[in-house]
């Protein structure tokens, strides 16, 4: 999990704005020893759910990380997040594969759990990669927008 950590300056700001909901993710190099909570910007129950019916699949931006690009695809049913899949992730060496076999199911589970518990955000220690998070955020932003 520690290999998922990276130390880099602010690279990208994801900014989304809807009529009543705005969400944003950015990176700061303030606290290098902590791992951020999942940016599970769960689509707000009131914000977009009413407008969206049926199943939609949205692919997030490809986000460059130290180990290679990461890209996440989400599936929404009636505005609810039902699946999160990493479609692109680093696999170049056995270490990558080891990390991914551990981290990706965990990241997916965090995203889905946050939504199923009907919560707005999550506090606490998690081991989420920035790349995964950013791509997930961009997919959620696109789905909402």
């Amino acid at each position: 999990m520690h290999a998922l950590k990276k130390n880099r300056p602010l690279r990208r700001v994801v900014l989304a704005s809807a009529a009543t909901v705005s969400s944003m993710v950015l990176l700061l190099s303030l606290k290098p020893h902590s791992t951020p909570a999942p940016a599970v910007a769960v689509p707000a129950p009131s914000g977009s759910a009413g407008a969206v019916t049926g199943t939609r699949t949205v692919t997030g931006d490809s986000v460059q990380t130290r180990w290679g690009p990461v890209q996440v695809r989400i599936t929404l049913k009636s505005g609810k997040l039902t699946e999160v899949t990493a479609v692109v992730y680093p696999t170049e060496n056995p270490r990558d594969q080891e990390i991914n076999s551990f981290a990706l199911p965990r990241l997916r589970s965090e995203a889905l759990q946050a939504q199923s518990a009907d919560i707005d955000t999550v506090s606490g220690a998690t081991y989420t990669s920035d790349g995964y998070r950013q791509s997930l955020q961009s997919a959620l932003d696109s789905a909402r927008g």
């Binding site: 880099r8 944003m24 290098p32 998070r133």
Partner: peptide, 19 residues
């Protein structure tokens, strides 16, 4: 490693909230 800040802002005019 960086810290992710995420905001969820409810209400307000989109332009004002964006600013």
């Amino acid at each position: 490693m960086g810290t992710v800040f995420s905001f969820d802002v409810r209400g307000g005019r989109p332009g004002a909230v964006q600013a």
